[in-house]
Design a protein around this nucleic acid. Structure first.
Lengths: 338, 338
DNA sequence: AATAAAAATACAATCGATTGTATTTTTGAA
DNA sequence: TTCAAAAATACAATCGATTGTATTTTTATT
């Protein structure tokens, strides 16, 4: 029942069986007889043997582990993606190392290095907001290392991306407000180095176009979309002429803006209708409940990790650039009801 | 600029310098001359050398990595604790592997095994709700492996725990409701195999006692405290005679209960006042905003990891049982205002 | 009983870095 | 210039598991 780092050699000595046979037995190889296996299993249990994965990984040059880097694990969207990844990984017999970049490019670089020096078999990454240069990733990608971007795509070079159709989502959200009768719709936008925010904005302008409303850059407020940014944006918005709708590129900013506007006697949705983005759990609970875009988060995790495992199994895929686009859906709640 | 798994031996060959010297140079040992170091650094950069941590860890038997197991990374409390842990770890030069048990004892066991077989130097764990038996941890603990429990303590055997004073928190929350004039206070309680829920309940009963109100087991509703459980509890609560206050052992259940009661025309806090537990971000945003107990989450992460690093450095500490108790604070919001 | 084929087991090298010891080179004092 | 001490470098074993090859044992066939 003891445990202090028992090795296959301890089992080997205890039984007078070569360590190679012990190793094979523990891996259930059919080169070892049933009888011997049983002896070895018993002795292993008795000594409290536990495989040293480091040695195993070193020798085989496979870690059966993938790394996942997200900006922040506490964000509902990312933790749902991770849930999807973990489900697929579990079935494939892989371990998952979860890391958060906290939106810092420095941390992100360090995490990539750490994961690689621990010889993970592949990496799934949603890049930080600060990331606009991909040197720290490109190099590995070019060497055929299995690396997949999700949610925040990287189209600089040949890469595999799993994203949602942000243009369509932006279009649907804005069109919904237009259908409702909004004429002056403000867009809370995020950092434009992230393609995803470019796309949501593109969806917004496309919709305006489609409905014959002229686009004005004055109605776009670009921030980091944090809680404080939402309040600031709401403040600005009150100085704009007769705004009657807001499409926010995330829920966080939309919610804090709504909270602020309510203190200023602005009626939501009567005076200003809101649509957010991400379907954070809180958006269903606040008052008024927030219309928003639901992203297939869990599915995204499954799709991205499935692709990654294919690349790991069959390295040639790693070279092939492919982009999977998942479909978002608009959820209409009180913040934009007629 | 290539990278395909360059080793110290490649550098060694390229320069005609022994690999042991290369290794020492890369670790900045003073047994290597400045001139040689420079040559080695340059060649390493040129070849795109990256240390193989697996080999290093195997040889040194130290991984400079700790494991953290929490029930769920998406819970605000846990992600804040993790932030505290990561800050301390970063300063100490340690990597952190984050894992979630999803409240499943099976997953928890598997995670512990995986972490150990990857030879982490220590583990910080907040046990799952299902965990009532500690065999999978006790064994290692007894062998002097650095292992610290946080938030959800384990007092079965000699262990190090970092917890908050749940009895005091429960007392303060309940006393606050009593001061407000509540006479029939219901307690939403959690699984009693977790000491933390026992303690919150104890605080509740202590407060009733202190204020001369008789305790009745009928007023305690024990669930898993998930969203659905809150709704169910609220339903039950309506069948109880003149309930005028609720102390919920977490925010999630309190919030869903409030949402449900509002649909039944119950006025919060006029008819029933609420105090939750954990100070989830959402609790400040819902209406009415929820009074709750703020736990020093970030600090808990720092304290727990600091203790762990002490144990890792100085193994003898690992044997010493100590419990750190952090102080919670009551945050009064609209759900319990006069 | 003899022997070829098949099964089981043993031998030995290897993965990449580290580290105690041995050897060579350099330095500086006599 | 000589030589001991110090500095720099090389040698070789090691961490624990895996795996190709060699050897031994068992099985089955004639």
């Amino acid at each position: 029942m003891k445990n202090n780092n028992v090795t296959i050699h301890d089992i080997s000595k205890a039984l007078g069986i070569d360590s190679s046979t012990v190793s094979r037995a523990l891996n259930n190889s059919d080169r070892v007889s049933k009888k011997t296996k049983e002896k070895i299993f018993n002795k292993a249990a008795e000594l409290g043997y536990q495989r040293n994965s480091l040695a195993s990984k070193l020798r085989t040059n496979r870690s059966n582990t993938i790394g996942v880097i997200v900006p922040r694990i506490s964000r509902h969207f990312f933790s749902s993606v991770i849930a999807g990844i973990e489900e697929t990984a579990f079935k494939a017999g892989f371990d998952v190392i979860i890391c958060q970049s906290l939106e810092s490019i420095e941390r992100e670089k360090k995490l990539v290095e750490t994961l690689l020096s621990n010889r993970v078999d592949g990496i799934l990454i949603s890049i930080s907001m600060e990331t606009s240069n991909y040197d720290h990733l490109d190099n590995y990608k070019k060497n055929g290392f299995p690396l997949i971007f999700f949610d925040r795509p990287c189209n600089v070079s040949e890469n595999t991306n799993v994203i949602i159709d942000d243009v369509k989502a932006g279009f649907d959200a804005t069109a919904h407000l237009l259908e409702r009768g909004c004429k002056n719709i403000v867009h809370f936008s995020g950092p434009q180095n992230l393609e995803l925010y470019q796309n949501r904005k593109k969806g917004y302008t496309n919709a305006l176009n489609a409905y014959g409303i002229p686009f004005s850059e004055d109605l776009v407020i670009e921030t980091q979309l944090m809680q404080q940014d939402g309040i600031e944006a709401a403040r600005q918005l009150l100085n704009l002429p007769k705004v009657d709708g807001v499409f926010s590129a995330n829920d966080t900013a939309a919610i804090s803006a709504i909270q602020y506007l309510k203190t200023k006697q602005v009626k939501i949705p009567k005076d200003i209708a809101f649509v957010g983005f991400s379907n954070e759990p809180i958006s269903a609970i606040i008052e008024p409940s927030l219309s928003t875009i639901n992203q297939p988060d869990f599915e995204m995790g499954k799709v991205a990790s499935t692709l990654l495992f294919e690349q790991i199994k069959n390295k040639k895929y790693a070279a092939e650039n492919q982009t999977k686009i998942l479909k978002p859906t608009l959820i209409i709640r009180d913040s934009s009801k007629f």
